[in-house]
Computed example of a mutant assay.
Amino acid sequence: MQCKICSSPVEKAFEAEILQKYQEGFYKCQSCGFLGADEAHWLSEAYTNAINASDTGIVARNLSLYKIVSLIAYNIFGFRSKNVIGGGGEHTC
C-alpha cells in the first residue's frame, strides 16, 4: 500500500472501531508521517447527521482550534505548509 500524499510505503499503525460497527485499519507513511484509513467507506454514513442541531458554537470552536493545531503542527512536527486540511475543510494559517 502507498501513501495518499507522497506515494511512499505505509505501515499499519493501529485498528479502531468506527461508528461502533466498522473495524478499520489506520496506516502511517514512513516518509511524510501521514496517518489515514485505507478506504474510508464509512465517511458518508459518518456525516449523515449533524453533530447536534442545537450546538451553535461548533463553528467558533473549529475556527479557534485550527489555529492551535496549526501551531502544534508547525512548531513541534515541522510541517511547513500555510494550509491545514482537516475534517472541517482547508484553512490558511
Score class of each variant (00 low, 15 high):
residue 26 F to M: 00
residue 85 I to A: 09
residue 57 G to I: 01
residue 71 L to K: 15
residue 10 V to D: 01
residue 32 C to N: 00
residue 62 N to G: 15
residue 50 A to H: 06
residue 22 Y to S: 01
residue 31 S to K: 14
residue 44 S to W: 07
residue 39 E to T: 15
residue 59 V to Q: 05
residue 5 I to Y: 10
residue 17 E to R: 07
residue 78 G to C: 08
residue 15 E to S: 09
residue 30 Q to M: 06
residue 16 A to I: 06
residue 85 I to Y: 01
residue 11 E to G: 05
residue 56 T to R: 14
residue 87 G to V: 10
residue 66 Y to H: 12
residue 1 M to T: 11
residue 81 S to N: 12
residue 1 M to V: 10
residue 72 I to C: 09
residue 6 C to K: 08
residue 75 N to F: 09
residue 30 Q to A: 04
residue 10 V to T: 13
residue 62 N to Q: 13
residue 46 A to E: 08
residue 79 F to K: 15
residue 40 A to Q: 09
residue 53 A to Q: 14
residue 40 A to E: 03
residue 41 H to M: 02
residue 69 V to Y: 11
residue 17 E to N: 07
residue 60 A to C: 00
residue 11 E to K: 14
residue 17 E to G: 08
residue 16 A to C: 01
residue 4 K to M: 09
residue 29 C to G: 00
residue 81 S to L: 09
residue 8 S to W: 02
residue 82 K to T: 11
residue 54 S to Y: 13
residue 78 G to T: 06
residue 28 K to T: 11
residue 79 F to T: 10
residue 66 Y to F: 13
residue 43 L to G: 01
residue 55 D to R: 06
residue 26 F to H: 04
residue 80 R to F: 00
residue 48 T to I: 09
residue 9 P to G: 05
residue 29 C to S: 03
residue 40 A to C: 02
residue 24 E to C: 09
residue 14 F to Q: 02
residue 63 L to N: 13
residue 76 I to W: 07
residue 13 A to I: 04
residue 53 A to C: 08
residue 85 I to K: 08
residue 18 I to W: 01
residue 29 C to L: 04
residue 71 L to V: 10
residue 68 I to F: 10
residue 3 C to I: 00
residue 28 K to L: 07
residue 57 G to Q: 06
residue 54 S to I: 08
residue 15 E to C: 03
residue 21 K to N: 02
residue 42 W to H: 09
residue 16 A to Y: 04
residue 79 F to R: 12
residue 46 A to Y: 13
residue 34 F to S: 05
residue 31 S to Q: 15
residue 53 A to F: 13
residue 11 E to Y: 05
residue 45 E to L: 07
residue 9 P to T: 07
residue 65 L to D: 08
residue 91 H to P: 00
residue 56 T to K: 15
residue 86 G to I: 08
residue 49 N to F: 07
residue 42 W to V: 07
residue 55 D to V: 00
residue 47 Y to A: 12
residue 93 C to Y: 13
residue 37 A to H: 02
residue 36 G to D: 03
residue 86 G to P: 00
residue 16 A to W: 01
residue 23 Q to N: 07
residue 15 E to H: 03
residue 47 Y to D: 08
residue 15 E to D: 15
residue 72 I to D: 05
residue 34 F to Y: 14
residue 77 F to D: 10
residue 28 K to C: 10
residue 93 C to F: 13
residue 14 F to A: 05
residue 18 I to A: 01
residue 91 H to I: 09
residue 8 S to V: 03
residue 41 H to S: 05
residue 72 I to H: 12
residue 76 I to F: 05
residue 92 T to D: 12
residue 52 N to M: 00
residue 66 Y to L: 04
residue 53 A to S: 15
residue 49 N to S: 11
residue 84 V to D: 04
residue 44 S to T: 12
residue 5 I to C: 12
residue 13 A to D: 09
residue 61 R to K: 10
residue 8 S to D: 06
residue 26 F to L: 03
residue 90 E to A: 12
residue 91 H to M: 11
residue 80 R to D: 15
residue 76 I to E: 14
residue 40 A to S: 03
residue 63 L to Q: 15
residue 2 Q to S: 11
residue 59 V to L: 05
residue 78 G to W: 06
residue 60 A to W: 00
residue 76 I to Q: 15
residue 69 V to M: 13
residue 16 A to T: 06
residue 52 N to V: 00
residue 47 Y to N: 14
residue 87 G to E: 04
residue 1 M to N: 10
residue 40 A to H: 06
residue 30 Q to S: 10
residue 72 I to F: 12
residue 67 K to F: 01
